[in-house]
Design a binder for these strands. Sequence first.
DNA 1: CTGCACCTGACAACAAATTATCAAATGTAT
DNA 2: ATACATTTGATAATTTGTTGTCAGGTGCAG
Lengths: 165, 165
Amino acid sequence: MTDMDERFYKIGEVSEMLGIEQHTLRYLENNLKLKIKRDERSDRIYSESDIETLKLVLKLKEKGLNTTAIKLALENAEETEETGMATRTNNTDLVELVSVARKIVEQNEELLKQNKNMEKRMEKLEEKIERRNEEREKKVQEFLDLWKSEQGSKNKSWLSKLRGK
Amino acid sequence: MTDMDERFYKIGEVSEMLGIEQHTLRYLENNLKLKIKRDERSDRIYSESDIETLKLVLKLKEKGLNTTAIKLALENAEETEETGMATRTNNTDLVELVSVARKIVEQNEELLKQNKNMEKRMEKLEEKIERRNEEREKKVQEFLDLWKSEQGSKNKSWLSKLRGK
DNA sequence: CTGCACCTGACAACAAATTATCAAATGTAT
DNA sequence: ATACATTTGATAATTTGTTGTCAGGTGCAG
């Protein structure tokens, strides 16, 4: 819980690490209803904890449990993980933990707000750039047209016209 | 729990009661390592509790558990029966902690998503600017080309005029 | 002795779970 | 353009789990 592990593995790597085929990984994901995250390309990305889970799954498979049973076992494991902390920590620790967690939540809320602000700013920036581009575009185009037409008709002093404008 | 547990059933009866074939009962006995008593003739005799166990087994089978899993489940069932299984203390704190933790995870996921979106948008913005620049570049180039050709043919002196200004 | 209800073990038949393979599509990098 | 690592879905092949059947045995009641 202390480790915010940002390391993610792709299916090929996991397959290598655990010695099971990719299609088996996908099969397990479907059957056990594991929720493996995806990246922008919707490729699976496995977190360390996912891999721990998979290791457990493999052990249970070794023991001869079918996926239905493993599913239940995983639920239990999660529960005992949660409750396991209670048996090991006394109340004061727990209270402290909760308060720290609360702080994190606050911070996260702050971050969320900031992100939203940034998004808004981005939008404005996009608009601005868009407008500016169009303007420039227009000007250059105008100028070019003007000059072209000038060329086409006569060779009057386009420069003076420009000046006049 | 009472001492009036002396009622025993033979395999035929049990088969009738539970609606499963005799050979299936034998199969389950072997596979689940149930310890069914025998009488003098070494015929199986099923106690009420054996039948309860079998009912449980059937339920678990319905759920899709294989015999290996059911074996484990039976062990667990016995344990919780024996110990009476005191339910968790500190439940409230724990529940709260878990719920807060869940929130954190959710928020983090949200943050991650937002960040990714922003990144994408940034990239797109960059591309856009790039494209615009290129276009403009082209137009200016066009203009310059025209200008040059103009210079080549007539108006030699426009440059000096421009300088003069 | 015969029939019945049970026993065992081996094996066949079926069902379900698991693993493997294929085709088509996508995005990325060289 | 090509190669590569993914994705999904469908389907085949294989393994494992479960149920059914068969061929003998034992004991005992009628």
